[in-house]
Amino acid sequence: MSTDQPGRRLDTPRQRRGPSFNLDSDIVGVYSERVARFLGTGRYLAIQTVVVIVWIALNLFAVSLRWDPYPFILLNLAFSTQAAYAAPLILLAQNRQENRDRIALDEDRMRAAQTKADTEFLARELAAVRLAVGDTVSRDYLRKELDDLIDELSERLGGNRADAPDDDTDSGHRHRR
C-alpha cells in the first residue's frame, strides 16, 4: 500500500470520480420507438412538407429574411442531421420489434407443443374410454339375457312344481343341468 492513499486495497476497483451517466436501455428504446413511429406517419410527412415549403418560400421571396439562400445549404444540413438520427432510431425500433417477435414465436411454439400434448393425451383417453365401453354390456343385450333367464327360471319352476316332492327340504338347494 502506498502512503498516498491509506486504506486503499489493490483488489478493489477505484470509485469513479465525476458524474456517472446511467441510461436505462428500455427507456431509450421506448422513446426511440415512439420517434420512429412518428417519423413513419403521414402527419410527420405533411408537417415536414409544410416546413420545407415555408423555408424555401421565405428564403426565395422574403429578401430581408434570407438566412439560407438558394442552394439551401442549411436546409440540406437539417435533412442530413435528421437522417443521421432517424436511421439509428429506426434500426433500434426494428431490433426491439424483432426481439418481441422472437419471444412471441417462442411462446407460440411452447403453446403449440402443450396443445399437441394435450390433444394426444385426450386422444389416448378417448381410445381408452371407447375400449372400456366396448367391453361393457349394452342395455339391449342385458335385457335379452334377463328375459332368457326369466324364461328359463319359469320353465324350471313350472316343471319342478309338477315333479316336486311334497317336502321342501330338497327344493331350491340342488340344481341339475
Rank of each mutant, 00 (worst) to 15 (best):
A117K: 00
L92Y: 08
S2R: 00
Q48G: 15
T12L: 06
L74S: 10
L39I: 08
D168A: 14
S80F: 08
D148V: 01
I90N: 05
L126G: 04
N59I: 01
P19L: 09
Q48S: 15
A36L: 05
D135S: 10
Q94E: 15
L45S: 15
V50W: 00
E155F: 11
M1Q: 07
S32C: 14
R161L: 09
T41E: 04
L126N: 11
F38C: 12
L157P: 01
G40C: 06
D140L: 05
Q48F: 12
Y31S: 11
R161K: 07
G40I: 01
F21D: 14
G158L: 03
S80P: 02
D166P: 10
F79E: 04
R156F: 03
R16D: 13
D4G: 02
S2V: 09
R139F: 03
G29P: 05
Q97L: 14
P19C: 07
L157A: 06
I103F: 12
D147A: 11
D147W: 01
A62W: 04
D151W: 08
A62F: 01
R124T: 14
G18D: 10
S2N: 10
I73C: 02
R102M: 12
M110R: 13
A86R: 04
R174D: 06
L75M: 07
R161C: 06
G29E: 07
A164P: 01
F72G: 00
E125F: 01
L157N: 11
N160R: 05
R9F: 04
P69I: 00
I56A: 02
D24K: 03
Y31C: 13
N22W: 02
P69H: 02
V35M: 08
D140A: 12
L157K: 07
M1T: 08
D168E: 11
A57T: 08
R109A: 15
L122C: 11
E125T: 11
D147N: 03
A128G: 14
K144M: 03
R17F: 10
L74T: 06
L89G: 13
P88Q: 04
D148M: 03
D24G: 09
N95H: 15
T49G: 14
Y70S: 10
E120Q: 06
Q5P: 12
R130H: 05
R156Q: 06
T12H: 04
S2A: 14
E145C: 06
S64E: 15
R43N: 09
D148Q: 04
G42R: 04
G134T: 03
L131K: 13
Q5H: 13
V51C: 03
D24Q: 07
D147V: 04
D108A: 15
A78P: 00
T136Y: 00
S32Y: 04
D148T: 02
I47F: 00
D11M: 02
L39P: 12
R124C: 15
A83M: 08
Y85V: 14
I53N: 03
I90K: 11
S20A: 14
D26K: 09
R102N: 09
P6S: 05
L142G: 03
L74Y: 07
A93R: 02
A84I: 07
S171A: 10
I73H: 02
F61Y: 11
D4C: 07
Q15Y: 05
I73L: 03
V28F: 04
R8Q: 12
G42Y: 00
A57D: 05
P88C: 06
